[in-house]
Design a protein around this nucleic acid. Structure first.
Lengths: 142, 142
DNA sequence: TAAGAGTGGTTCAGATTTGAACAACGACCC
DNA sequence: GGGTCGTTGTTCAAATCTGAACCACTCTTA
């Protein structure tokens, strides 16, 4: 269970560091940053609400809240989904793209400094495949 | 960065599963369970508030809140710290011990089913040392 | 021994998350 | 067509987390 202990503590500690860094650099929270990057990685920079919620692993209501916040900040817009009248598309704005370009380097720097660079290339590779396996299982049985 | 993505998603997904399982099994939240196990692992089943907060990686105020909740549930008691009049000791009660004994198996089962058993023994070992390294760094520079 | 600085916990306001309830739409079957 | 069921996103109340402000106590230092 030492593995689990270390995993959990590391996750919490990293979360804290990241939150702190993002807040200082751009007034963003980590969930908000995750939303922006997910959108940025999508062709068209847009995604359906439910799909996005599953991607970043938060409840639908939490996503509704955060998208509203990001909309106020001008980084995201809501659009009605063509072909499905109930659907809502979250769309990354130009300002959102620029914000991400400005913030991403500092964020990645933190992740790298505290996680990636601390472990060997081989350990990293092993951990990646392990994490991907468990992620697959968790998503499948969700 | 695939490593980081997978790590993050896995952490969130597992957190969700665990929260769900603990709530169903004993009406506990994950932070509460973490507090109980930390106390249980301590000689005398007691710990100072600040130290405990650092251990489980939450803010002092969050710990105050949760200890109050656990006190209401009768699983933990507050005691004044001998030798330091301002200090407060969180003490696991007998009911707390019994609660933990009842809940722990199911909890560990979830962790094992979704994380431990999904990866090879060697991967587990590698991941453990990697996590411990990063945890050390994060705690030291915190 | 009397500041002055530091620590330990709590309180407080504000932000965020969750699950349940809800309303609106789509898909399907008769 | 119309009814039934599943999906989508939002709203709502309740719970929780955080950082700042705040007391109470401890430790140094002159």
């Amino acid at each position: 269970m030492a593995a689990w202990r270390a995993f959990l503590s590391t996750a919490h500690l990293l979360e804290r560091r990241i939150e702190e860094q993002l807040k200082a650099a751009a007034g963003l929270t980590h969930p908000q940053y995750e939303i922006l990057t997910r959108l940025s990685d999508t062709p068209g920079h847009q995604m359906r609400m439910t799909e996005l919620a599953k991607g970043v692993v938060v409840s639908k209501s939490a996503l509704t809240y955060q998208i509203t916040q990001l909309e106020k900040a001008g980084l995201v817009e809501r659009a009605t989904c063509p072909g499905d009248e109930r659907g809502v598309l979250a769309v990354l704005t130009d300002a959102g793209v620029r914000c991400l370009e400005r913030v991403a380097p500092g964020h990645l720097e933190v992740v790298r400094a505290y996680l990636i660079d601390r472990i060997s290339r081989e350990e990293l590779h092993t951990m990646t495949t392990a994490m991907q396996k468990t992620e697959t299982v968790l998503r499948a049985s969700g």
